[in-house]
């Protein structure tokens, strides 16, 4: 038994409900951006619960703009990353929802270590803190981000905790409170 077995109604998703819409989205994206999409994983075929599109980094912004404005996926549900311990190392994971149909898709962008990603704040302002969190936890830099500081950890912290090579135990103790940056209120 795995996720390919029919998904039961008590978990809130139905292949039957969104199956056709997912196909339409996948066909539309592959027709408009044949070069931008590296791979497409569809539920029922791969081990995913919603269609997952792997995008190339330099064309990700255009595809997301299309998804937002044309296909109606205008709600950024979640924006995070995973450390795959492979080459390329990181996957950025973006979950989008359509407010009219409540249909969801997942976007993934592969990034090598030290590779920078252009920011998505121009599409969704809410991406601001999400990108700060990804920077804090994974050390991925975002080009064009206005305020790329650590968000959960202390400013003086060393290392990025959600990387797989980060140790599980160990302390960094700061005896003085976190300094305030007066520039932030200018």
């Amino acid at each position: 038994m795995n996720i390919n077995t029919p998904i039961h109604t008590i978990y809130g998703y139905f292949n039957e409900k969104f199956g056709t819409e997912w196909k339409v989205v996948a066909e539309s994206l592959t027709a408009h951006f044949p070069e931008a999409i590296e791979a497409t994983l569809m539920p029922g075929v791969a081990d995913v619960d919603m269609p997952t599109f792997f995008l190339k980094k330099d064309q990700a912004h255009a595809v997301l703009q299309n998804l937002k404005d044309v296909l109606g996926f205008n709600f950024l549900t979640d924006y995070t990353a995973t450390d795959e311990e492979l080459e390329p190392r990181f996957h950025l994971v973006i979950h989008l929802m359509s407010l009219s149909t409540k249909c969801r898709v997942r976007i993934k962008i592969k990034l090598a270590d030290q590779e920078k990603m252009p920011t998505l704040i121009s599409l969704w302002e809410g991406a601001n803190w999400a990108e700060r969190e990804i920077y804090d936890m994974f050390g991925i830099h975002f080009e064009g981000h206005p305020d790329l500081r650590r968000i959960l950890m202390d400013m003086r912290w060393e290392g990025h905790p959600l990387r797989k090579d980060y140790p599980l135990r160990g302390y960094q103790v700061f005896l003085t409170p976190e300094p305030l940056d007066p520039e932030l209120l200018k």
Partner: peptide, 20 residues
């Protein structure tokens, strides 16, 4: 748990709580 990935949202008291 078998290989796979899933994002499961639920309407929590404050809004959408999701486990990816």
């Amino acid at each position: 748990v078998p290989k796979g990935e899933a994002y499961t949202p639920f309407e929590a008291a404050n809004g959408e709580l999701g486990f990816y």
